[in-house]
């Protein structure tokens, strides 16, 4: 059970104060800078990247870093810098899809579970127990393998293992505010369940869910990269960082740049998300402020 699911409400002034705190934390700023840079690079990839990420040029294969190719080239003569730049798009797409879908599904189920309680709650929570009973990566691998190796299936697998976390967070939050006055008032006024859930309860569940989501982003990136590294994620010629390291492995001894730069990109991205996530948690949950 997570420590921050018990109640607190968010108001405008609190958000403003939170932003002020974010500004004052240096590490959080580093995290924010990394994430902003990632988004900028992803959006403007076609303008930033010096070459196409998939265009092969056999004459230029396995060239060390140089002015023309700052990160060197891979075994098909593709520019690694351009592939790393385009890789940010793949990574962001995975993040948005996985977090978006898990957030949607998990929050909805959590809402239903917490609001209705009883056997609905019992069933949903037992189901989420089951998913949490597997180490995440192993289950994701098994699902991805069963569906067939592709990036889309890896995303499906990740959604399948991730939704219970959001369901639990939301449920806890719902339980804590279900009986609060304004909900009771709305119910007394004859509002429908759907309306109460969406208008009154959901807005008050948002912030812990957001905290969970920002904390999860780093892990999503790592899991996706690991799935691709093992071969259950992105397929060629997609410039996915984990897949690039996987192929570059066979060039480790003589061509160090092949694995170095995509790996570094994963490390920095995950670090950015983690720093930002820690900061967001500290800000939105004043109860527990544990710095890294």
């Amino acid at each position: 059970m997570h420590w921050w699911i018990r109640g607190y409400a968010t108001r405008g002034s609190e958000w403003r104060r939170a932003l002020g705190r974010l500004w004052r934390s240096r590490l959080a700023l580093v995290g924010l800078a990394i994430v902003v840079a990632l988004v900028v690079v992803a959006v403007f990839a076609p303008w930033i990247a010096p070459y196409s990420p998939t265009k092969i040029n056999l004459r230029e294969r396995l060239k060390p870093p140089s002015v023309a190719h700052p990160f060197g080239t891979d075994d098909a003569g593709r520019d690694i810098l351009s592939r790393v730049i385009y890789g940010s798009r793949v990574t962001l797409r995975i993040c948005v899809l996985v977090v978006g879908l898990t957030l949607g599904i998990g929050t909805l189920l959590g809402l239903i579970s917490g609001y209705f309680g009883g056997w609905v709650d019992e069933v949903l929570m037992r189901v989420s127990d089951v998913f949490l009973a597997f180490p995440a990566l192993i289950l994701a691998m098994a699902i991805a393998a069963a569906l067939g190796p592709s990036l889309e299936n890896a995303i499906v697998a990740m959604v399948a293992i991730w939704w219970p976390r959001y369901a639990r967070v939301t449920r806890g939050q719902v339980l804590s505010i279900r009986e609060i006055d304004f909900v009771a008032a709305a119910r007394a006024a004859g509002a429908s369940s759907t309306r109460i859930m969406l208008r009154h309860i959901l807005p008050n569940c948002i912030s812990p869910v957001v905290v969970q989501a920002t904390l999860d982003l780093g892990e999503v990136v790592l899991t996706a990269a690991t799935l691709s590294f093992i071969g259950f994620g992105a397929q060629p010629p997609t410039p996915e960082w984990g897949a690039m390291v996987s192929v570059g492995r066979n060039f480790l001894r003589d061509y160090w740049w092949y694995t170095t730069f995509p790996g570094l990109a994963i490390l920095i991205t995950v670090m950015g998300f983690n720093l930002l996530g820690d900061a967001v948690r500290d800000i939105l949950d004043p109860r527990l402020r544990r710095g890294p």
Partner: peptide
């Protein structure tokens, strides 16, 4: 056969030039 993956990338691009999209599966 590691060279297959490398040739697959070339073939993928060669066939793309004549309008055939190739999905590579390992």
């Amino acid at each position: 056969v590691p060279e297959w993956r490398q040739m697959a990338i070339v073939v993928q691009q060669n066939l793309a030039e004549i309008g055939i999209d190739v999905e590579v599966e390992s």
